[in-house]
Nucleic acid binder design. Sequence first.
DNA 1: GATGAATGAGTCTTCATTCAT
DNA 2: AATGAATGAAGACTCATTCAT
Lengths: 203, 203, 203, 203
Amino acid sequence: MPKISDEKRAARRAQILEAAWLCFQKQGLQATTMDDIIRASGLSAGAVYSYYPSKEELIVAAVTTSLIGLQERVEPILRSAPPSPDLFVEKITQAISDFTTRESYDLKRIALLGWSEAQRNERLRETIRGFYLAFRARLADVAVSWCNAGLLRKSASTSDVAKVVLAEILGFVVQSALLGDVEPRDMARGLQDLAAVEVDDGP
Amino acid sequence: MPKISDEKRAARRAQILEAAWLCFQKQGLQATTMDDIIRASGLSAGAVYSYYPSKEELIVAAVTTSLIGLQERVEPILRSAPPSPDLFVEKITQAISDFTTRESYDLKRIALLGWSEAQRNERLRETIRGFYLAFRARLADVAVSWCNAGLLRKSASTSDVAKVVLAEILGFVVQSALLGDVEPRDMARGLQDLAAVEVDDGP
Amino acid sequence: MPKISDEKRAARRAQILEAAWLCFQKQGLQATTMDDIIRASGLSAGAVYSYYPSKEELIVAAVTTSLIGLQERVEPILRSAPPSPDLFVEKITQAISDFTTRESYDLKRIALLGWSEAQRNERLRETIRGFYLAFRARLADVAVSWCNAGLLRKSASTSDVAKVVLAEILGFVVQSALLGDVEPRDMARGLQDLAAVEVDDGP
Amino acid sequence: MPKISDEKRAARRAQILEAAWLCFQKQGLQATTMDDIIRASGLSAGAVYSYYPSKEELIVAAVTTSLIGLQERVEPILRSAPPSPDLFVEKITQAISDFTTRESYDLKRIALLGWSEAQRNERLRETIRGFYLAFRARLADVAVSWCNAGLLRKSASTSDVAKVVLAEILGFVVQSALLGDVEPRDMARGLQDLAAVEVDDGP
DNA sequence: GATGAATGAGTCTTCATTCAT
DNA sequence: AATGAATGAAGACTCATTCAT
């Protein structure tokens, strides 16, 4: 077999990653054996190792690619004129749910696995950290646009709003993965109800 | 008639669980070896196994006990007249943070580990599921009380409000564990800002 | 099984080392698999690894123990009033040969394996180096005693004599291991013949 | 009719062998992987295998070629009127040292590796054995010439003298490879001192 | 002829669990 | 009841060799 083309090579990498995803979400990151992935990929051990030099690399790649895939789906929503917070959260969570449905694996489950793994894998931790920090920065921008649009009072702390919105999105992911009975629409409704709350305004 | 008293037995179990917690949060659930736990507990392998017949049992016990510990701290807040949503979320997240600070282990990290493990461990999954469903039911009760107190409009979906509030709490846990820069007070402020939003009321 | 006695522990280590020796000299250091040693030792993999934490450790132990065994046999010869060089070399090489015959393994073959391995194993290299340097220092002492006894001229370089004597011993080991037809007596005879040489005395 | 000329073919073989030598002396025979050699040679796996059908073949070739190279350098010394034993040994060991210095690899290290490998590789063992036996036969011839020249007494056992001289040469190789502080001149001096020894003549 | 991707048996090592003492 | 040495089935990874292109 002579030199393989770049596309072929990328396809092989994708094929292996796909196999890894399937195994990971079924059995978890650590509990998945390389043999599971090798068998699922249809390749030989040597071939898999020639594309990903270690299990850790495969784990990092699986989680990182998930994050990138998520980013790609969320980006257009962040870019477009963001609607009110409740509809915004609905759109984002819907994008996350859609991702899961369309692709062969569940983004939310991979997310939970990644968070867990991040606690003992510094590289993964930094990758995930960087991703969420960047995402939250984008959410803060969105909060600013809400202020400008008069949806949020001028005195609002956009960084705190971003923290809450991120919490709502991450909390949706957790709840959806563990309980499976939460829909984006539910989030929107609950947020609308909460937005109609009477609050004692802080200082 | 056992040679060892019940209290002694309970104390030993607690000692082992303590050791397991420390190891689990440092290294993760799967990556922690029984030998790690055995050494940390100061007991012999046989002794540990006589109290917990398998590693899985220890994992389930560690996660379950964490959930119970959390419940104990959250219960009084649920019981007491709950304040407005933003202050309520602040109180709950504060209780979670306090738990971490006071005890020798980090509840939030154990939570993430437990969620991840739940995906391949049915027993753990059901335990966690049951816990969060019960917790969410309590949150729905709180939402009802908010309705009654006029803090929430009568038409509010208390179940959806509960979903959102749970998401905010879980999302705080995730964000705090991964990014470490989110305080209960931030959540409260962000929620206040969001509650002052102008929304198109749904039907 | 409760705590094992120190003797028992030492016996087990010896049992494993014995097995390793047999395998090593039959197949070489690298080509011997841990499984070979495990099977030869009659223990389980875990047991072997609990005594020697890695194959490298076992290799170093095997070579080091050989060196120590050799030292023990050679020491009395060094200590006793050394005879003339030819008889001294005969005695030393005889001790090396005897060692091989009496024990279940061939010291000379282990030596060759060790030298080879020393080239890529720094720890082994330093161990072997230290051993031979010490041995050569002892040979220099012997050379001094030969000077004092009038067997060597006063102007003799005892360090060079030590180098030659060590070369003769090591060369005997190589030749004996590879060709198998060299006896200590042959060395003595050859040395006697050479000692009767007419030389142009250097400056 | 081969597509490639014989010279080209020989050049390729030499190129591969050169690469193998470099790897072998750096990492040892077993520890060197075919991939190491392939990369060092700058050729493809298939190409290397078309010239040397197995790793063993390459090992045997590397050792054999070393022996031949050595022979070529030693031959003129054997052929020329050999001086006294001490000067003869100096010349031979000097030739061995020079070989190392001039070529890109260390003959002495390859020698040790070959001896070690010979113990589990019969073919190599026979090659090496044949070489050293032939060399020793030549040394015996030299010993005869010493007798004739009156440098050695008539009663001398030329075969035993050959054994001792070979031991001195091999021992120089070992000592030089492991300790690195032995010069041909040292050997000559030590031998001169030893030749001036007073011995009880054997029968 | 050459290439280098692919193979897969084999390597070292770990670790949950047991059970003789 | 307690101990901790022993077990042995995996697990991650390697590497000599092949063969489709």
